[in-house]
Write a protein that binds this DNA or RNA. Structure first.
Lengths: 142, 142
DNA sequence: CCTTGTTGTAACAAGATCTGTTGCAAACGG
DNA sequence: CCGTTTGCAACAGATCTTGTTACAACAAGG
């Protein structure tokens, strides 16, 4: 599992934008953000694109362009970020269809769907308990 | 996310073994299990190997060999299965080290660790609420 | 209207991971 | 000793992720 670090990157980006805003710098370019994450600006633009489609940030194009937070850091939770950057469910079903002649092969998928739904709900509830402001506070403390 | 279906495969295997045991067939070969999952026996042996190392199943080698459940289906939870088949954490950190000159780059990783720990705990608590016996019951109902 | 700086996105490479497959040595019951 | 089955290595194909380069689209400001 853990094939990707998208939640980590997006949270880093937003936390950095929250700190910059507190310091009076409202407009940031993807290059400036990339300097903190230490990666390529295109990676940051991809992440910011996800966040923009989810309504968490806004962009201004053209010369002197850049990004701003669309909401206060207190109003952005890790669940918002997770939903913005993760599309696929947590656990995948079988690659190949199970043997439908077998009672287990026939009924296992709805049974697993039910269990996995509960897990995803628990995950979402926990993610919603932390905001970008919380992450920033803890980031500066350590 | 969801790069893999290991939890699904392993749960399917155990559910099928629970049903077979209820029908009086205690010893199953990887080929018999593979017929229900509809995949290659080596895939099943890999999954059963994880489950054996976790103490959830037992194996007898040689001629007339096969697998048995090491515990009652009521005593095996999805958390046991998850721990048996998933090693890596749910969310990955940055691939490249963040810029430690930046206060966010410096402090973000412990802050994220803390948040991710809470999420994993919530995930585990929810997974523990469902047993293989529960999955079997719901599988046969639908 | 033109220059300039920035975004949006496509195309591609390298690496990792996952599933599936083949082959074979090791184990062991009969 | 034979026959069955596991354990495991090696490999192929598919997909995903990160990183990189390149370039068109866009708009602010002179």
């Amino acid at each position: 599992m853990a094939g990707n670090s998208r939640l980590t990157i997006a949270t880093h980006v937003l936390t950095w934008m929250a700190l910059a805003r507190r310091r009076g710098q409202d407009l940031l370019t993807s290059e400036q953000v990339a300097a903190s994450v230490n990666t390529n600006p295109v990676i940051i633009r991809r992440s910011l694109g996800d966040l923009r489609r989810a309504g968490l940030v806004e962009v201004r194009r053209g010369a002197g362009a850049g990004w701003t937070l669309a909401r206060a850091p207190e109003e952005i939770t890790l669940l918002d970020v997770y939903n913005a950057v993760e599309q696929q469910p947590l656990f995948a079903m079988h690659h190949t269809e199970p043997n439908l002649e077998c009672p287990v092969g026939k009924g296992i998928r709805p049974a697993l769907d039910h269990a996995y739904d509960g897990v995803e709900q628990a995950l979402c509830q926990e993610l919603r308990r932390t905001s970008i402001a919380d992450v920033l506070k803890r980031t500066l403390r350590e």
